[in-house]
Amino acid sequence: MSKKKDNLPNPFNEQPLGGLLKSIDGFFQNAFQNFQFVGGFPVYEYETETHYIIEAELPGVKKEQINLDIYSNQIKISVESSEVIEEKDDKHHVYKSSNSFQRAERYIILPFTISQKDVKASYRNGLLKIMIPNKKKRIEIE
């Protein structure tokens, strides 16, 4: 038994519905193209004799997009990106506008409380480096 396949047009490929679906697909495919931190970003922590150091890899991010907040023994690193794309075609009377906003953040819990005045941060070549004086004190055991 063979089934006969109708040669009916696929409404999902026809205009205007097909065009609408393609533009929706394009939006979701391109929405996070310029912002790589949807799932977070790599953060590394290590200690030296004098400092506790936190490094975050943030390639392609501008310094103005980075925020550092201090809460007692925590540091929050957040990165925000927003973009407005507008397209206008006077010939076909089409106007498209799309907005995107992305935010990624990481909390680092430190083994001691910190003061904002003690924290130094720098950002160069996509690497955020946070230096905190190491307040760890050794206790001599008798």
Rank of each mutant, 00 (worst) to 15 (best):
S72D: 10
K4I: 14
K63S: 13
D89G: 13
E55A: 06
Q36D: 07
S97D: 09
D6N: 12
I54D: 04
P16E: 04
E47C: 02
G19L: 09
K96D: 06
I70N: 12
I130C: 07
F32W: 06
N10V: 08
Y107T: 10
K76S: 03
S82R: 13
D69L: 05
S81A: 10
Q74R: 14
L8T: 06
Q15E: 04
K120M: 05
Y123N: 01
P133K: 04
K135S: 09
E57P: 00
L127D: 06
I130L: 08
I66M: 07
N125F: 15
K5N: 13
A56D: 13
H92T: 06
I66L: 10
S82Q: 15
E142F: 14
E49S: 00
I70P: 03
V43S: 01
M131G: 02
L8C: 00
D25T: 06
P42F: 11
H93Q: 12
L20I: 11
G19A: 07
A56L: 03
G40M: 08
E80A: 06
L17P: 00
S81H: 15
V84P: 01
Q74T: 10
D90N: 14
I77D: 00
Y46H: 05
Q29N: 15
G18N: 03
T48S: 10
N34P: 14
K120D: 02
E83N: 13
E140W: 10
E87S: 09
T50H: 08
F41G: 05
E105I: 02
K76T: 15
K76C: 10
D25P: 02
N10C: 09
F35Q: 10
P111M: 09
K76W: 07
N7A: 03
F101A: 01
E86D: 12
D69A: 14
N99I: 01
I139F: 03
K96E: 11
I53H: 03
V119A: 02
F28C: 05
I24D: 04
A104T: 14
E47H: 07
N134T: 15
F28V: 07
E47W: 02
E45C: 06
L17G: 01
I130Y: 08
P111H: 08
Q116N: 11
E64W: 04
D89F: 08
F41K: 06
I109A: 04
P111T: 02
G40R: 00
K5R: 10
L58Q: 03
D25G: 12
V38Y: 14
Q116H: 14
E87G: 04
Q65S: 06
N34G: 10
I139D: 03
D90I: 13
F37T: 12
K91E: 08
S78Q: 08
N7W: 00
E49F: 02
D90M: 07
Y52G: 02
P16D: 11
E87F: 05
V79F: 04
K3E: 07
S100P: 04
I24Q: 09
